[in-house]
Simulated assay, not measured.
Amino acid sequence: MSENEKNLKAAVIALAGYRAGGALPALDEIETYWRGLVDANGIAPSRAELDPRAFSRSLSNCFIAESITPRHLRLRLTGQHLSDVMGMDMRGMPLSAIILPDSRPHLEQLISDALVGMTGPVRISLFAPPRFGQPALYGGMVLLPLRDEPGAPRRMLGAFATVGKPGRAPRRFRILGAAEVDRPTATPAGRPALKVIDGGLSARP
């Protein structure tokens, strides 16, 4: 299997919700909680509606980010997992700090699209290349829009998870693919379909 094929396979696994490693299911849990707060009209919850006790098992994977420009998010609250992988307290840092420079324009476009359109969840598959003291590391991130609050910057609930040993910190990731998950509606719930964004991959039930 070529390196490109391996990367594509990793992206599909991450976008679908990798379960065997015991880490990326945290993304599913947090997204499921967020979906439960979306009203019948598809309006996202506000920051004030979030109750960390409802996703306590995945709390270490969570973060709250706020917009500082139309294409950038700053981390305001972060879980321990992100700090462990990066080797520092990430509060106050831009979300792009965890992304390798060649993938930052892609992240900026995803953030811009999400902030402008207030779309549904965005799943991002990640890969940290191996280096000395740093094994190859696969991961994923989900961005979940929050409803605007008067006088406050636009915010997002996010989650970040990895599979395997992170090795020596800090680790920075390349974006392998991204997909916008269909916005929740009042129709009966099922496994959400994934829609391709900017060259990302799709995963169907």
Rank of each mutant, 00 (worst) to 15 (best):
M1I: 02
M1W: 08
S2L: 04
E3G: 02
E3K: 10
E3P: 06
K6C: 06
L8N: 05
K9M: 13
K9Q: 13
K9E: 14
A10M: 10
A10F: 08
A14G: 09
G17N: 02
A20G: 09
A20C: 05
G21W: 09
A23Y: 10
A23E: 15
A23P: 09
P25W: 03
P25S: 08
L27M: 11
I30H: 00
R35C: 14
V38C: 09
A40N: 05
N41E: 14
G42E: 02
P45R: 02
S46R: 13
L50H: 06
D51M: 07
P52T: 10
P52Q: 08
R53E: 12
R53V: 15
A54Q: 15
A54Y: 12
F55T: 04
S56H: 09
S56E: 12
L59I: 13
S60K: 12
S60P: 07
C62F: 00
I68G: 00
L75Q: 04
R76D: 07
L77I: 10
T78K: 04
T78A: 13
G79A: 05
Q80I: 12
L82H: 07
S83H: 15
S83W: 12
D84H: 07
M86Q: 14
G87H: 02
G87D: 11
G87L: 08
M88Q: 14
M90C: 14
M90F: 03
M93T: 14
M93K: 13
L95P: 00
S103R: 03
P105I: 08
L107Q: 03
Q109V: 08
I111G: 00
S112D: 11
D113G: 06
V116T: 05
V116L: 09
G117C: 10
V122F: 09
V122N: 05
I124Q: 03
I124R: 00
S125R: 06
L126D: 12
F127V: 01
F132M: 14
P135F: 06
P135N: 05
Y138M: 12
G139W: 04
M141Y: 02
V142Q: 04
D148V: 11
G151C: 03
P153I: 03
R155K: 10
M156E: 05
G158K: 00
A159F: 01
F160H: 01
T162P: 08
V163Y: 13
V163W: 12
G164E: 03
K165R: 15
G167V: 11
R168S: 13
R168Q: 15
R168W: 11
P170W: 01
P170L: 01
R171D: 03
R174Q: 12
R174Y: 10
R174L: 10
A178V: 01
V181Q: 13
R183V: 02
P184E: 05
A186P: 02
T187R: 15
T187N: 13
T187P: 06
T187S: 15
P188Y: 05
K195C: 04
V196A: 11
V196F: 01
I197A: 05
I197Q: 09
D198W: 02
G199V: 06
G200N: 04
A203R: 13
R204W: 12
